[in-house]
Design a protein around this nucleic acid. Structure first.
Lengths: 194, 194
DNA sequence: TGCTTCTCGAACAACGGTGTACGCCTTTCA
DNA sequence: TGAAAGGCGTACACCGTTGTTCGAGAAGCA
C-alpha cells in the first residue's frame, strides 16, 4: 500500500504510472472523459484503477498535482531578471508550452477539485506572472491605465486562445510562441498615444 | 400544433416563450444545465417542455437560432465605415455585449448541434470581423506581421476572457467595454518598433 | 516453490439524466 | 357553456457513469 510504509509491488507501480499518463493525455483534450476510457487507455481494468485511486476526483487531483509540479519546475527555471519585456518573453515561452500541453486539465480540475484547492493550484504560477507585470508597470514599460488583474486575464486569454487555435489546426505549433509573445507584449506595452 | 398551420393556443405560445427565455438565461452560464432546471425556471412542467420541443437538442438549437438572429441584427447595425480603428471599437462594443450575454450558449450548442450547423452559425459574424481586420491591414493601421487568422483568434480570446472575468467578478461590467477595446486595439496596432 | 500482492471481469447498487405513457385537471376560445 | 387544446404530476424504461463486492487467477518476490 502507498498509505503506510509498505513497498508496492512493481506491477502496481507500473500501473499507477500508466494510469496517470493516460489520464493526463486524455484530460488534456477532454475534461469530461470517463474513468472507463482512462482505464482502457492505460491498459488496465477499471476496478484496478479504483484500487489505486479511491475516486475519479482523486485521480484528477493526482494528475493536477503532477502537472502543477512539472509546471512549477519549468517556470521557476525561467530567469525573470533584466528588462521586463525580455523576461516576459521568456516566461511566456515557458508558460505557452505548459498551456498547450496541459491546458484542458485545468478545466477538468475545476469540476473535480474544491475551489480552495483550485485557488492554491493557481496561486504560485499566477504570483510569478503578477510580480513580473507589476515590475514592468513600475518601470514604465507596461501600461498602467488598466488594472493589473485585467492584464493577467488578457495574458491567460491569449495563451488559451493560442492553445485552442493550434489544437484546431488554425496556427502551426512552431509559430505559436512568437505570436503569443508579440501579441501579449503589444497589449501590455505603453503606447505613444497613451 | 406548430408543424401544421393550426394556430396554437395563447398559453402554449406564452409557455414556449418562457421556455426559450429561461433556456437562454441558464445556458448562458451553464451549458450543461438539465431540462428539468430549464422547465422549473420557466415555471413549466418538464413534460410540457417536451410537448413543445421533442428533445433537449432541439431546444438548444432553437435557443441558438434565436441568439444568432438577434446577434446578426445587432452586428449588421454597426457602422463599419471610416477609420478602421474607430470601426473596430464600435464592432467590439457590440460584439462584447453579445459575448457577455450569450457566450456559453455556443458551448452548449457545440454539444447539441452538428459541426456543419456550428460552422454556419459562426460564419457571418466572423466574416464581418475578418473583413474589418483585413481592411485595417490594407490601410496600414493594423499590423501585418501576424496571420489574419491569428488576429481573429486574439480578438475572440480577449472577448471570452473578458466575459469570464466579469462573470467571475474580477472586472466590473462597466469597465469591460473600454478594456476590451484598448487591449484589442493595442494588440492589432502597428508598432513604432516594428 | 510457495506466499503475498495485485489484476481482472462480472455483477450489482445508486444516481442523474433523457424521453415516453397515462390520467386528471385547467385554460382557451368559439 | 361546452368541446378541444393544453398543462401537470406521476410513473416508468433506458442509458451512462461512479463506486463497490466477490472470487478466480496471474504476477511478483523471497
Amino acid at each position: 500500500m502507498a498509505i503506510d510504509g509498505t513497498a508496492r509491488r512493481a506491477d502496481a507501480r507500473r500501473n499507477v504510472e500508466s494510469i496517470l499518463e493516460a489520464a493526463t493525455a486524455l484530460l488534456a483534450t477532454d475534461p469530461a472523459v470517463s474513468v472507463n476510457e482512462i482505464a482502457r487507455a492505460a491498459g488496465v481494468g477499471r476496478v484496478t484503477l479504483y484500487g489505486h485511486f479511491p475516486s475519479r476526483a482523486a485521480l484528477v487531483e493526482a494528475v493536477s498535482r503532477r502537472v502543477i509540479a512539472s509546471t512549477d519546475q519549468a517556470l521557476t527555471a525561467v530567469d525573470l531578471d533584466g528588462d521586463a519585456r525580455d523576461a516576459m518573453a521568456r516566461l511566456l515561452a515557458a508558460t505557452w508550452q505548459l498551456t498547450y500541453r496541459f491546458g484542458a486539465i485545468v478545466v477538468a480540475a475545476s469540476d473535480a477539485l474544491t475551489p480552495e484547492e483550485m485557488r492554491r493550484v493557481h496561486e504560485e504560477p499566477a504570483r510569478r506572472m503578477r510580480a513580473l507585470v507589476a515590475r514592468g508597470r513600475d518601470e514604465g514599460v507596461f501600461r498602467r491605465d488598466m488594472p493589473l488583474s485585467w492584464q493577467l486575464t488578457t495574458v491567460q486569454a491569449v495563451l488559451h486562445g493560442a492553445s485552442a487555435a493550434v489544437h484546431r489546426g488554425d496556427v502551426p505549433a512552431e509559430d505559436a510562441t512568437r505570436l503569443v509573445r508579440d501579441t501579449v507584449l503589444a497589449a501590455l506595452a505603453v503606447t505613444s498615444s497613451g
